[in-house]
Design a binder for these strands. Structure first.
Lengths: 160, 160
DNA sequence: TAAGAACGGTTGACTCATTCCAGATAGTGG
DNA sequence: CCACTATCTGGAATGAGTCAACCGTTCTTA
């Protein structure tokens, strides 16, 4: 069975072909999932993909993600202290808001647009390729959770 | 034996007292080490401290580091894909140059100075506390290593 | 359209950084 | 100097991610 409802419009298929990557169901499903659910964790992506395809190994999800990241189809973000997240928006050098508590990530447009959007005052001989900006704070949900009692540290990671 | 050559000038001792933390040899040694070796990894700190005090458990190093970080005596930086590093320079909101290959980190002064030095165009309801800026690239040593042959991926992590 | 080279997926073991736990030890205020 | 705890020790555990061997698919080219 080739195409179920996964990647119905064939957008992921085209993207894979253009990148010179083989077209497989796990790949199409991962890309399709990320189109609808940006900033998902590996766990969440695995779950979402399995919902559509049945069994897909965790290793396969990791492989797909790194192949696509390497090919420039995906961008990986790794907020300190939280598992990595992935998104389809690449090449526009935008930044992120990240919740310290649950790890939820959201996009923030870069005012400059060009890469790198910032330049260090003194690069100390480093060949700088990119300026990564992360705005750390608490997401709306976690702000509410923190206020009431100082106890109750649920600490639920937001998976997708 | 209270004071060997560790923390000879007693600067670390004072810092601990002021922060309301107990003064122990592992703590003094870790702080003294980081004064001389900023951006060290836990491994490097452990090795450096053991050189002076003899046996110190890895767990103790982790405990000291988190206690001091929590007390505001240290700052933890966690470059994606590399083990955490620590430094004594806190509260001045400076940023970092990080080598993608070996993880080496160096300071970059913040032009703004105040915290947060950047503000997201749209915070989407997040309570933003801090803007973290990381300049990713290759350090001078790794630039040399990458050029010559495309093979030879030594990938030695710079520990201290 | 069929054959086979080569890539991708499965499974299971493994690494590495970091954290958890229970018991022994050592700072500190009184 | 003592008692009260915070801290250190050693060992086991966790969680994210990687490695490797083998088997099944996809792409190619004829």
């Amino acid at each position: 069975m080739a195409s179920t409802t996964v990647d119905a419009d064939g957008a992921a298929l085209k993207a894979l072909r253009q990148a010179g990557l083989r077209v497989t169901n796990p790949r199409r499903a991962v890309l399709a999932w990320l189109t609808d659910h940006p900033h998902s964790t590996v766990d969440a992506i695995g779950a979402g993909v399995r919902e559509q395809l049945g069994t897909v190994s965790t290793q396969a999800v990791y492989d797909v993600l790194s192949a696509c990241t390497e090919a420039g189809l995906l961008r990986r973000i790794e907020p300190a202290g939280h598992p990595a997240r992935f998104e389809r928006r690449v090449g526009d050098n935008h930044h992120h808001l990240v919740c310290r508590r649950c790890g939820r990530a959201e996009d923030v447009d870069c005012v400059i647009g060009a890469e790198p959007c910032l330049t260090p005052s003194d690069d100390q001989g480093f060949a700088v390729e990119e300026a990564e900006v992360v705005f750390w704070g608490l997401c709306p949900d976690c702000v509410l959770d923190e206020r009431p009692g100082l106890e109750a540290h649920h600490h639920k990671e937001a998976k997708q």
